[in-house]
């Protein structure tokens, strides 16, 4: 049996761990609240924007826009959204599994240090990595989007996709590959998302749509705007997932430490009692012998 001193030392270290994980849980919880709010508040906006484009796209058969047309996919462009820091459970590992499934040639872009490290480690074609601060302003995401859009227009990559942890709720974050460009199959993707979310389909109005000032002008403004906004929304969602995952991981760690502490305390008390009993026995035996 371990000596009381050893047990005491362990109790102390576990207590320390519990304190740290507890503090980290609280920090993550407060950040989570903000991140979730931001992600959820932006949702209706992003959805409405996507819906507008989805209704617009089929009516634009005569308009040629590089963002709209499907072309032969030689190289996929994938943006990987991960966290900068660890200690957030299986969040990043789940994303990496999705990355490993990509067998076709692809160029990677990363936001988040964990992702760029992973891509470098597995020797994938990492074009650029970006870091964003906790404040997560739109202007921080913009350079990444601009670089990808430029590569897309230059024909270096033939799609823009985003691998990110979709925020469902605090306990569930679902790794997902989300196609952003080209928009050719946007309508079908949206329909699938809508049935999943249980929202009713759009009102059917098959009269010709009017564009002001002109279809081209609206499109020119709307599409780049959509791409920016959309990716930004995904980043927000990823951020909400990160803090949720971290909070849950830290809570589990804290609970574990509490349990371990209980067991150790019990063991310590037993050892202490045993030592006292042994001491009394010794005294009694000594008295008996001399008396």
């Amino acid at each position: 049996m371990a000596s009381t001193r050893d047990i005491r030392r362990r109790i102390k270290s576990v207590k320390n761990t519990r304190q740290i994980t507890k503090a980290m849980e609280l920090v993550a919880a407060s950040k989570m609240k903000k991140a979730q709010q931001a992600a959820l508040a932006g949702n209706p906006y992003a959805q409405l924007l996507a819906r507008m484009l989805a209704r617009l796209a089929p009516r634009l058969t005569e308009v040629q826009h590089p963002f709209l047309n499907q072309r032969e996919i030689k190289t996929r462009g994938i943006l990987l959204l991960t966290t900068d820091k660890g200690l957030c459970g299986p969040l990043n590992a789940n994303l990496f599994k999705l990355v490993l499934e990509v067998k076709t040639p692809a160029k990677f872009y990363a936001i988040g240090r964990k992702g760029s490290q992973f891509l470098a480690r597995t020797k994938r074609d990492l074009v650029a990595d970006f870091s964003v601060s906790d404040r997560l302003a739109f202007s921080e995401v913009k350079p990444a989007v601009e670089l990808m859009v430029k590569a897309y227009l230059d024909g270096e990559i033939d799609t823009i996709e985003v691998i990110y942890p979709r925020f469902k709720n605090t306990l569930v974050q679902e790794p997902q590959v989300r196609p952003v460009l080209p928009l050719a199959n946007l309508a079908s993707f949206l329909a699938a998302a809508q049935t999943e979310a249980g929202t009713p389909a759009d009102t059917n109005d098959d009269r010709d749509m009017l564009f002001e000032p002109s279809a081209n002008e609206v499109l020119e403004a709307l599409i780049p705007f959509y791409v920016n906004r959309h990716i930004y929304q995904l980043v927000l969602s990823a951020r909400a997932s990160e803090h949720s995952a971290r909070m849950v991981a830290m809570k589990t760690a804290k609970d574990n430490a509490t349990k371990l502490l209980g067991e150790l305390t019990l063991e310590y008390n037993k050892a202490r009692q045993a030592a006292i009993t042994a001491e009394i026995l010794e005294i009694a035996a000594a008295q008996f012998a001399t008396g």
């Binding site: 010709d208 749509m209 009017l210 564009f211 002001e212 000032p213």
Partner: peptide
């Protein structure tokens, strides 16, 4: 961007800035 527009029920489908 083209000026104010008033919308009444039954308006033709429209997308505008």
């Amino acid at each position: 961007t083209e000026g104010e527009i008033g919308i009444l029920p039954g308006h033709i489908p429209l997308l505008t800035r």
